[in-house]
């Protein structure tokens, strides 16, 4: 080499610097702010105390509950769909599902909320259809703008996300295991109980963690759908930025933010551990 060589680390400096400025610094500001008393500027645990009690504690409860429900149910449904697609002989179907999953998994947020207002809103198509048959969904206590309503909407991007992330892991199921089980006289139930599910379990769990994280930080769909009436943690944090704050509680939003980061960080650590186990099988 005629040119003088730069030390290798120089190449990553711009990237590292940008990430530090636009991700590192803001996060540190939030974390520090969570422990500052807005009146005196001194260090306090009061924000964290408020953020982990009363309406905010219930917010974390609903957020975690919603994320659990929309990780488990769409997780299982997505797995079933992915298995059905894998078993199907039609190549066209496989390709169609793969493309559709990509589209729907990327299609969250605001437009999704409006699709469902037209479907399951108080005058939505399905609600009117069911009413014509004599069942009054809203009279029976259902509402699109409640916990379960939002959960149904989340399935619209969670199920395709599950299909996308679990499909590569399904290749870990070697066809000759199925053949071996068949030849040894195993029923399908026995095959899944003793071979299929144990092999898939770490991957399925890992993907469900990913789904949990995706539901937990989702803001747009719920915000557009309920205009803030469903008390989830991201919505509560958003209302701090919109200026709906009691004086003296300005930093509670930051403490809530730290709480969210902690929850997601724990999940990501679990996910990384599971990935290590999964890759052992896929090798």
């Amino acid at each position: 080499m005629r040119q003088r060589e730069l030390p290798a680390w120089v190449g990553v400096v711009p990237f590292a610097a940008y990430t530090l400025v636009f991700l590192g610094v803001p996060v540190v500001a939030v974390v520090l702010g969570a422990f500052v008393d807005p009146a005196t500027g001194g260090v306090t645990m009061a924000n964290v105390g408020i953020a982990t009690s009363g309406v905010y504690l219930r917010g974390f409860g609903s957020s975690i509950g919603l994320s659990l429900v929309t990780a488990l149910v769409p997780g299982v449904l997505g797995l079933v769909l992915a298995l059905a697609v894998r078993a199907s002989p039609s190549l066209r179907l496989k390709r169609a599902v793969a493309t559709a999953s990509g589209v729907f998994a990327n299609f969250g947020g605001v437009p999704l909320a409006f699709l469902f207002v037209a479907t399951l809103g108080s005058t939505g198509l399905v609600v009117e259809l069911v009413k014509a048959v004599g069942v009054d969904l809203y009279g029976a206590g259902f509402s699109l703008y409640s916990f379960w309503g939002v959960a149904i909407v989340y399935g619209y991007f969670q199920i395709p996300l599950m299909v996308l992330v679990i499909t590569p892991a399904l290749d870990g199921l070697r066809p000759h295991w199925r053949e071996a089980a068949d030849n040894l006289g195993a029923t399908p139930v026995q095959y899944w109980r003793h071979v299929g599910l144990p092999v898939l379990a770490p991957a399925v769990l890992g993907c469900m963690l990913l789904l949990f994280g995706s539901a937990f930080s989702a803001y747009a769909t719920t915000s557009a759908l309920t205009s803030g009436s469903l008390a989830l943690t991201p919505i509560q944090i958003g209302s701090f930025l919109n200026g709906n704050v009691l004086s003296g509680q300005e930093n509670v939003g930051r403490a809530l933010g730290v709480g969210m980061i902690v929850v997601v960080a724990v999940l990501m650590a679990l996910y990384a551990l599971l990935q290590r186990r999964v890759s052992r099988w896929l090798r």
């Binding site: 590292a16 990430t19 636009f22 991700l23 610094v25 803001p26 996060v27 540190v28 500001a29 939030v30 702010g33 994280g213 937990f216 930080s217 803001y219 991201p234 944090i237 958003g238 701090f240 930025l241 939003g253 930051r254 933010g257 969210m260 980061i261 997601v264 960080a265 990501m268």
Partner: peptide, 20 residues
């Protein structure tokens, strides 16, 4: 490092960004 933006929910990041 590229996974970090997923760990920090956008609603939290924007608080910090608007602050600094």
């Amino acid at each position: 490092v590229t996974l970090l933006p997923i760990v920090v929910p956008p609603v939290v990041l924007i608080i910090g960004v608007l602050e600094v």
